[in-house]
Design a protein around this nucleic acid. Sequence first.
RNA 1: CGGGGCGUGGCGCAGCACGGCUAGCGCGCCUGCUUUGGGAGCAGGAGGUCCCGAGUUCAAAUCUCGGCGCCCCGACCA
Length: 423
Amino acid sequence: MFKDTGHENAYFPLFIPESFMKKEAEHVKGFAPECAVVTHGGGKKLDESLMIRPTSETIIWSMYKNWIQSYRDLPILINQWANVVRWEMRTRLFLRTTEFLWQEGHTAHASDAEAEEETLKILKIYTKFAEEYMAIPVIQGLKTENEKFAGAVRTYCIEAMMQDKKALQAGTSHNLGQNFAKAFDVKFQDVDEKNKYVYATSWGVSTRLIGAIIMTHGDDKGIIMPPKLAPTQVVVIPITKGDEERNKILEFVEQMTISWNGKFSFKVDDRDGYRPGWKFNEWEQQGVPLRLEIGPRDFEKNQVMMARRDTGEKTPIPIEELTDTIESTLDAIQLALYKRALENREQNFFVVDDYSEFKTKIEDPGGFFWAHWCGKGECEEQLQEETKATIRAIPLDNPHKEDGKCLICGEASKERVVVAKAY
RNA sequence: CGGGGCGUGGCGCAGCACGGCUAGCGCGCCUGCUUUGGGAGCAGGAGGUCCCGAGUUCAAAUCUCGGCGCCCCGACCA
C-alpha cells in the first residue's frame, strides 16, 4: 500500500547543524526547546553545535537547494525511516519516548495545489492503514493554528479514541507551503520562465502506533493483534499424552498445516515441558488472533478446537473445513475489532453546547465532544487551561457543519470541532 | 523544576519505627519422578556487594550524614 505511492526511500544525517535549524523561524521556535544538542566532539567543544534531529525538514531542505533548479526536477518524493529525538519533559511508554522510530515523508512540488493534493493523499493512506490494518477508526481533520506543526501552513491529522476515552494523534500530514523553501532559498524555474519558491509537504507516523494498537484493542489478558498485522496469525497447540500419541498428533498436525503456507502465518507450539493451559495464556498475552487446539478427542472426531482471541469463543471445526474457516475467521476478527473500537468511540462521543456542562462531563464520563468554536486562539487556550482538554481536530467531511455559538465565548461558529483530553 | 514514593538473588516483595540467630517469601531457573483439554504436583538444588560512600556501635538491610539512581503525579509534545 505505501509502496504504490512513488516515494523513494532515502536517508539523511542524524546530526543537524544548529544553523540549519534556525533558518525557519517557527520551526526553530517549536523544536529548539525539545532538542538534544551535541556541544562536544573528539574531546573538544564544537565551533557549531549539532542538534540531534527532532525531524528532518532542515537537513533535507539543505539538500533540496542543490537538487532543485527546474520544474523538471519536481516533484521530489522522498521517504525516510529514521529514529528521532525529542527531549520531552515527560515520557510515556510507546506514546511519548525520548527517542522514537518513524517514517517521515518529504516532498517538493511546483504548485500549491499539488502540495495540498499530496498532503491529503497521504492523510488518506494513513487513514486506510489505521482503519483497515490496525482496525482503529480515526477522525481525519485539520489542526488548529495552535496545534499545527512548527513551520507548516496547515497540519492534517488522524485522531483515535483509546479505550480510556482519551484521544491519540495517530498520524500527521503537513502542507508546508513555501515556508521552508523561503527559509532555505529553494527556487525553481517554472514553465513560464519565472523563478518560484517550491511548495512542500511532510508527514509521518511513528512507533506510537504500537501503543495505539495496545490501547485500542488490548484487554486484561494482554495485547490483541489485528489479524492483518499479526506476525503470527494462528497458533496450533497439540495436546498429547505419552510419546506414541504425541507422534500421532504431531503427524496429524503436519498434514493439516501442509497447505497453509502463503495463506496465513502460523506456528505450531510443540514445546515440551509447557502444559497446554500455560501455552494458551502465553499466546493470548501476545495477541495471536486464532488458536487451534488439537488433542486425542479432536483426533478421534477428525476436528480441531478453534479459539478466537477477541471474543474467547471456542468452536469445534471439522478438519475438511478448517483452512477456509481460518481464513474467514481471521477476516471476521479484523472486522470485529474495528467495529468494537468504533462502537466504543460512538458511545463516548457527545454533542455539547453548555460550557459548565462540558466541564463536568469531560471529567466524568469523559470522551470526545462535538463543540462549537469561534476559531479564536484565546478561546482554545482558555479551554485547555480550564479543562485540560484540547481541540483535537476540525474534521474533514464534518457531520456537524452547522451554525452555533462558541462553547467558550458564545460568539458565532460555523461548525463543531472535536474536543477531548489527549495523550 | 515542584510534590509524593522507592532502591534487598533474574522479577515482584517482606524485614527497617524498637540494631542482634545462617537475611526471608512468591514467581522464575536447574535436577529427578509423577503429570499434560485453561498459567501442574512433590522432592532436592543453584543463586545476595541488602544502590554507593562515610559515620555511630561489641554488632547496621535496620540508626545518622552525604551522594547516585528509578518510579508516580503536575508544567511541553508524534
